[in-house]
Design a protein around this nucleic acid. Structure first.
Lengths: 189, 189
DNA sequence: TTGCTCCTCACGTCACGTGAGGTGGC
DNA sequence: TTGCTCCTCACGTCACGTGAGGTGGC
């Protein structure tokens, strides 16, 4: 009973995965069938199937396949940290998605019987912040900010980042993303 | 004043994008600079910058670059549908992330001072549903479900899908994903 | 001449989907 | 012999990141 062996198609049907997914797990050495038939066909043993189930369980918790692999193969890492990280990421995703949802609902409410031009106009109103500057003023602003940043000490920069994050809640999603993108670039210089 | 022209570096600094991102937008014909210098350097006009701002605004609403492109170039599509679709997707993402968050918090709470083995065990307990079957029983189940499905009429199938979705709230995230993956495969046959 | 910005390839990312062309077991 | 399952490439996805190697303006 314990020496039952699975073809890839049966295993795929039983787990709801695709054959291609199992091929992929094999290719990255995540779940490798212990046997092959003489024709080269994969045969999954009971142990392989147990490992696959662990993979699917962990995948359900949002771990990447790479993380799952190292968790299963070197189970000495600080699991609490990993889980905490997952939790933080998930919380963050919820917050961002919730904000986006609010904005979309706002737009839908304001939208009468619109075409795309109207949509774009409304969205631009909601996100129009920089557009009140001329390009030159805008470039000047960016340059000044950059120059100011470079005159700061490490501590002052950290303080600024904190303040920005406090102010962040009043920003639009677009600006959030832009801040997020521009910060590492600035920090590296 | 209106004929100011931007270099790619200045525009990147002013918007918080990377130069590479602007290259990308150019490559996919989303935002193409109207001019080049004799040396081949991109020069963005005021109109280009306005288009870029529209792109960023729409991106903030979760549209893909392809969607943004067709929105800007053929503004005749049903905008309300597009936005509604965005909203549905976002709501769905929030629901899934919230469920995941609950599960992670549950695990973290149950976790004393654990190593990965303990984690995997706990996760397996939380997700252990199929594991109460032997592989043969499991394969049998899958085969029976498949056979049953194929005997159904379209209406009966739709009814089943509805019922499954009702029951879904009691399922784990893993099972949700598996259902989600297996359904289109079955429907195609 | 030295920096700095700019240019064009071109591969890598993540978890597979989707053919393409061919082989083995019932 | 006909289907069906299986096999191995290998390109595509999405929005860029990250060098690699080279050129132009101050």
């Amino acid at each position: 009973m314990d020496d039952t062996v699975w073809s890839i198609g049966d295993l795929a049907a039983a787990t709801g995965l695709t054959v291609r997914a199992l091929h992929h797990y094999d290719a990255i050495n995540l779940v490798t069938p212990s046997m092959r038939t003489t024709a080269g066909h994969r045969r999954y043993t009971d142990g392989d199937v147990r490992r696959l189930h662990r993979v699917l369980a962990l995948r359900g918790f949002g771990f990447t396949l790479a993380e799952i692999g190292s968790l299963l193969d070197r189970p000495d890492r600080d699991v609490r940290d990993l889980l905490q990280h997952q939790l933080d990421q998930t919380t963050d995703r919820i917050a961002k998605a919730t904000k986006l949802k609010d904005r979309i609902e706002t737009i839908l409410a304001r939208l009468g019987d619109p075409d795309a031009d109207a949509l774009i106009q409304i969205i631009e109103e909601m996100t129009a912040v920089e557009r009140s500057y001329t390009p030159e003023q805008f470039a000047e602003l960016a340059a000044q900010r950059q120059a100011m940043w470079e005159r700061l000490t490490e501590d002052e920069r950290a303080e600024l980042v904190r303040k920005r994050e406090e102010a962040t809640s009043r920003f639009t999603a677009e600006e959030l993303e832009q801040l997020h993108r521009s910060r590492p670039a600035i920090n590296q210089s």
